[in-house]
Design a protein around this nucleic acid. Sequence first.
DNA 1: CATTATACCTTTCAGTTCGAGGTATCAGGG
DNA 2: CCCTGATACCTCGAACTGAAAGGTATAATG
Lengths: 115, 115
Amino acid sequence: MASTNPSFMNGVPELLVLRLLRGRKMYGYEIVQAIREETGEVVSLGEGVVYPVLHALERSGAITSARRTVGGRSRIYYALSPKGVSRLTELTELWSRITGAVQQVLVGGGRAGLV
Amino acid sequence: MASTNPSFMNGVPELLVLRLLRGRKMYGYEIVQAIREETGEVVSLGEGVVYPVLHALERSGAITSARRTVGGRSRIYYALSPKGVSRLTELTELWSRITGAVQQVLVGGGRAGLV
DNA sequence: CATTATACCTTTCAGTTCGAGGTATCAGGG
DNA sequence: CCCTGATACCTCGAACTGAAAGGTATAATG
C-alpha cells in the first residue's frame, strides 16, 4: 500500500543531491547552485525542490545534518550516511536502466531480433 | 500564461511514441507492446498513457491518423507528419541535453575546473 | 457459448516538481 | 545610517504527468 505510481522517470533530483553529497559535505543553498553550475544551466532545480528533498532524505536516514556557522553565516551541512550510499547506488542503477532502455528505442532502427 | 512547470524530466512517452512512428505507421495497441518489448520490459507504458499521447499529438498536427480494417480488426494507424519530425528532433535533443547534464553530475568526480 | 486477445477509449488518483513567497543575517553603496 | 542585494533557510499551493482501473466492442478459440 502507499506505493502507487512512481512514474518511471522520477527521483532525479534525489539522485543528483545524493551524488553531490558523495564527494563532500554540502549545504542546501550550495547544492542548488552546484546543480545549476555542474549541468551548465541545463538542469536548474530551485530551492523549493532541493530543500524538501534534503528533508526527506534526512527523515529516511540517507543523510545526516549538522548546523555550523561559517563567517557569520549559519549553514546546515549534510553528509551521506551508509544508507544514503546504497540509496545512491540503487538510484544510479535505475537511472542507467531507464536511460538505456529509452536509448534502445531512440537508436532502434536496427530492427532488433537480437537475442 | 499557461506554461507553468514542465518538470525537466517529462515528455518521454511522447518522445518514444514519435520515435517509433518514425520507422513505420503503427496503431496504438501496437505501440504499447512495442515499447514494452523494445525496452525489454524496463519501460512499460499502459494504454492509459499511450492513447492520450496519440490524441494530443494528432491535435497538435504532429501525426495523422487513418482508420483501416485489417483481418476484421479495425485499427487506427498513425503516421508522422513533417511537424512531427521536427518535434521528434526537438525532443531528442532535449533528451540528450538533459541526460548528458545528469551524467555530468553522476560522473562528476573529476572536480571539473575545466573551461 | 464463454473466455481470451485484440483494439479502442476515458476518468480518477496520486506523486513530483515548480514557483512564489516568507524570514533573517551580513556586506556594501549612497 | 538606510537600503539593497546576496546568502541561507523554509513552506505552501498549483499544475502537470503518468499509472491504474474500468468501460466498450469484435474476432478467435476452446
